[in-house]
Design a protein around this nucleic acid. Structure first.
Lengths: 231, 231
DNA sequence: TCAAAAGTGTTGAGTTTACACCCATGC
DNA sequence: GCATGGGTGTAAACTCAACACTTTTGA
């Protein structure tokens, strides 16, 4: 094993949030370095004695003061050897979903500012982060249709219409409200509460809750979630 | 950006091969280092000026003299900070499928020997490579049912029975030959040749060929391959 | 002529899609 | 009382799963 390798290891997080029928991504404004002033994904170099996922959580806390609901490794970007102007840096990118209740942010170390950006009006991101965001966006759309992760983007208790909107917005397709509700309810992983909530005008709707326990126990039995919105 | 990071970046490849109704994985025997004599996945440290995927291909050539048919990034293992006894090393693992025609191997640099091992009788692999192999095996089974990658494990021209066997073996389930053939043929991505081949005894079968062009053009139109073998 | 593998259709069950009207509330 | 969103069932189309016998070859 020759020891002359000069590669740095970074992590970056793509955190999605959902609010008012729009999808948001968390970006931070660089305080120092070659990307000073630019908006980039929260992230940074991994410390020698911390795990990759610890590094992501630490950076998210430091740079944006946020805790996420769901976190999984997305992809390791290291094929473009010039992706970072400071030298060879590979980045292990993580895909995350944030609790919409914790939508308040606060920048700290390394970051000038932290903000949610509507996916439909993103600033030009620094480094190759636009590419990473695209990959994460693809993963989100994909995952939404075969894993019940939409619930991690909603409040603990939600209206069915919010879930419908989430699917329509992110998958960019129409929905048949009756069939959609039938399908979701058929899995038995969403419980009806006896509370209701109204959203401005119109008849108030029942609040629902995702049943994590039931989902996990069904998963062990080999259960397959799938939502296909064609058209 | 503090510069005291002491993390090495390695790549490892899990190369699957298929022959005589059995699934094989490529391992190499370490020539040097703490795992001397142990069987491990082909791989090694990434050079500062090469991309990750170049590194994988280079290591595969150096350590086993093999070229693969299909290569994709699997996962980056870096949560266990003691996974390598020599210090902090993260490994970007790649999932690969080998052309069965190129089943001959030759060890070279760093590797004492290179061999195919039947998945049903694997030696205890060094480092955390057993974990990596399990992850790759899961990916293979998963991918087989929603992406036509089985063909990369077969010869260019193959018998339908070989494809059937491949699916049965890897997914570990029974198959209905009629329904299976109907399903595969319905996608129109497999062409019949006018050659036949016989496998020992019995009636000879037609040879088929995977139509890569057609598959790619269908993909653009948004086409969905899926093979579900229940039971 | 026997053993071994190849090839081939139909039917019933289950799932998915399409579709429209009444209900509860706030203004 | 009207505008707004919430809630609900059924029939037709389609897809999937089950199932068994005939054909071709080599020994």
């Amino acid at each position: 094993m020759v020891n002359d390798q000069k590669i740095k290891v970074a992590v970056d997080a793509i955190v999605f949030g959902y609010k008012n029928s729009a999808l948001y991504v968390l970006l931070v404004q660089q305080k120092y370095g070659p990307m000073k002033g630019k908006w980039v994904l929260p992230g940074g170099l991994v410390q020698t004695d911390e795990s990759l996922s610890e590094a992501v959580r630490r950076e998210l806390k430091e740079e944006a003061g946020i805790q996420v609901n769901y976190l999984e490794q997305l992809y390791t970007f290291g094929d473009d050897i010039h992706r970072d102007p400071r030298g060879r840096v590979i980045s292990v990118a993580y895909f995350a979903l944030a609790d919409p209740a914790k939508f308040s942010l606060q920048a700290d170390t390394d970051a000038e500012d932290a903000q949610w950006f509507d996916m439909d009006s993103m600033p030009a991101a620094g480094y190759d982060h636009a590419v990473i965001i695209t990959a994460a966006h693809d993963r989100l759309r994909n995952k939404l249709s075969y894993q019940p992760i939409g619930f991690d983007l909603l409040d603990k208790e939600f209206l069915f219409s919010e879930l419908e909107n989430l699917y329509c917005t992110i998958l960019g397709s129409e929905i048949d409200r009756r069939n959609f509700r039938k399908k979701i309810m058929s899995y038995g992983i969403v419980d009806e509460t006896n509370k209701t909530a109204s959203v401005g005008s119109g008849r108030p709707g029942k609040l629902f809750r995702f049943n994590t326990r039931k989902y996990q126990s069904l998963q062990k039995v080999g259960f397959h979630f799938e939502i296909n919105l064609r058209k």
